[in-house]
């Protein structure tokens, strides 16, 4: 019996040591990538290629989901607000919830599952098929050539994607409430404009998306680079990317919101 307890405690210790090791590897990998980013910045064409794959190809899912999220917000907001006879405030509701929270968070979650998983799978498979090792043999640094361009492409794409998500969402809300239901157009826009502050709402939203972009792509490239070079390893790493970056987005969102909107009226 005591032997079983000792084994259990050993298991806990092993997991803790393992995760501290992983965290250390992730930090060292992140620093290394930042140090070698200068080289890939000089070859900007690589980054443009990756922006095409992570940003441009994510556009459709981002725009369509933004439209639907905005339309649903408009419908639900109208449903509740009209009970109090203040249905013209639906524009404020749609715009504030999109710009402050839903735009950055949902766009980042979609980005993590659409682009983050692809980055992990690609880098993981490159490692499994020893392409990264082959590059090193040819004196090409795989971190500068493969990892850093993907990271910077994700960081650059993320704010644009979230901005498009929010503005398409506002348009979706407009479509449902003004065009379909018939809320007054003037009060829809004017109440929205008087409630949404550029500095507090929009700039804070953009800061959030930049943080999420860094977090998602850093997790994605690390998981890919750190994946065991087997089929099962790559699939596990892809799953971990989606799970970890989703949790990171939600946790970071709480922390950022607590700092940005605390005591704000």
């Amino acid at each position: 019996m005591p032997r079983r307890i000792v084994l259990g405690i050993q298991g806990v210790g092993h997991r803790v040591i393992e995760s501290v090791w992983r965290l250390g590897r992730a930090s060292r990998f992140f620093m290394l990538m930042l140090m070698k980013s200068g080289t890939s910045m000089r070859r900007f064409r690589l980054i443009i290629r990756e922006i095409y794959f992570t940003g441009v190809l994510s556009l459709i899912i981002i725009v369509v989901s933004g439209l639907f999220v905005g339309m649903v917000l408009g419908l639900q907001g109208y449903e509740t607000l009209q009970k109090y006879g203040s249905e013209s405030a639906v524009g404020t509701l749609v715009a504030l919830s999109l710009v402050r929270e839903l735009g950055p968070v949902v766009a980042a979650l979609l980005f993590a599952s659409r682009a983050g998983s692809a980055i992990t799978a690609e880098i993981g498979l490159m490692k499994a098929t020893e392409q990264l090792a082959a590059m090193e043999m040819m004196a090409v640094d795989p971190i500068a050539r493969v990892v850093a361009p993907r990271f910077w492409a994700g960081v650059i794409s993320m704010p644009f994607l979230a901005a498009m998500f929010s503005s398409v969402g506002v348009f979706g809300g407009y479509l449902v409430t003004v065009v379909l239901i018939g809320v007054d157009e003037g009060s829809f826009w004017s109440q929205m404009q008087s409630a949404v502050d550029f500095r507090y709402d929009i700039v804070n939203g953009v800061i959030k998306t930049c943080v999420f972009g860094v977090a998602v792509t850093a997790i994605a490239v690390f998981e890919g680079y750190d994946a065991p070079p087997t089929a099962a390893g790559v699939s596990g790493a892809t799953t971990r990317t989606v799970v970890t970056s989703s949790l990171a987005i939600l946790g970071l969102d709480f922390v950022l919101t607590a700092f940005m909107f605390r005591g704000m009226s």
């Binding site: 498009m164 404009q193 550029f198």
Partner: peptide
């Protein structure tokens, strides 16, 4: 196009949705 659309979306947010 992607970058231009992204900057356009930010401008829409700032000018049409926000109070800029």
């Amino acid at each position: 196009l992607f970058v231009v659309a992204g900057i356009g979306a930010l401008l829409v947010l700032a000018l049409k949705v926000g109070n800029m």
